[in-house]
Design a protein around this nucleic acid. Sequence first.
DNA 1: TCTGGGGTCCTTTTGCCC
DNA 2: TCTGGGGCAAAAGGACCC
Length: 418
Amino acid sequence: MSRRRFATPTQVSSGPPDDSGCHILHVDMDAFYASVSLLDRPDLVGTPVIVGGTSGRSVVLSATYEARASGVTSAMPMSRAMRLCPTATVLPPEHERYAAVSKAVFATFSSITPLVEGLSLDEAFLDVSGALRLLGRPTEIAELVRARILDEQGITCSVGVAPTKFVAKLASGLAKPDGVLVVPAADVVPFLHQLPVGALWGVGEKTEESLTRLGLRTVADIAHTPKPTLQRALGEVAGAHLHELSWGRDPRRVEPTREEKSVGADETFPYDVDDPAFIQRELLRLSDRVAGRLRAAGLSGRTVTLKVRFADFTTITRARTLPDPTDVSRQIYATALELYRALGLQRARIRLVGVRVSSLVDSERAPIQGLLDEPEFGWRDADRAIDRAKARFGKEAVTSAALLRSADPYFPRQPDTT
DNA sequence: TCTGGGGTCCTTTTGCCC
DNA sequence: TCTGGGGCAAAAGGACCC
């Protein structure tokens, strides 16, 4: 059954850990996408399964623990994952399914406490300080959450229980899979100090390299390094932040509502592309997608950013800020296209393009800009009409003539297999 | 081994105004 | 007229997370 773990390696007291003051839970689904996909494939339970695309440039979205045992990790290129674990079954992602399960899981969270901060589809912080009277100790609430999600959705999750967000997040990671880890307030510092620097949230490959160059390998090493030294190596903000965290100081509260800062879409092509006409059609498709999502969310934005990644993986961005916020497909496309043309590329080999809109405001409060050449029923009204048609007849119902795939020599464009 | 797609946040650079 | 620099916002790049 479930495993409940204790925090410090040098645990002296026996019995259950003292969870008083540990009012923050970090709940993280175990191998979320893979677990959800297996709900329809009980025959594959207990076998290595990888969720991800199968085209040449796909990466692993999620993998069962049986596949992870072979060294497969998420974000790893599929080609490499298949070499590591040739017996694995590969399942295609089912994003709508994951979103639906996620919604149900979050509904369960909300029935336990209103203070839920989602980090992604499959993980959230819960502040349970207001639920203690009704539901018991934090550890009991953690087990309640786990039991309900298993019962209602048929998937397992792991929970970290701690006085701060940061420690709760670390704890859930160590509790995986299918466990609970409590870090009592009194044990936070020794718990942190034994960890390698790479375990810290926010320390990735580059930062870890910088720290290693300073001879810092554990969180204890960071804690005993003067703050200015860290700040010189990592930057003012990051250095100070890391030093605070190394002593378990993390004042961040659980914030139930966080507004979106940007909406974007990008696409990596199966093969590098050097045809400007193809890139322009892609920009139209991506602009359409972004604008549609903005309108669905009731948002408009002023800054349009174009992203281009070249064959050698170097990436550039170019941005333009408009006089007024927009959610109009045509205008986002026109801006992205201008930015692209201004690059003056001469058949450069491109592997990805993306369009993103930021500086978001509520569309209700956004001034509607009247373009001088705008016809009486402008692009805005056309967009609305298209949205309605798509809602009624499906997403494929309406599309720009330029985007019809039959008109596109690149789609689908597989290498000759003969 | 060859790197997706959705984001956030921070730092540095650049351009403009005074 | 030329130059310097402070202050600010926007742009660009990059690290990081799931």
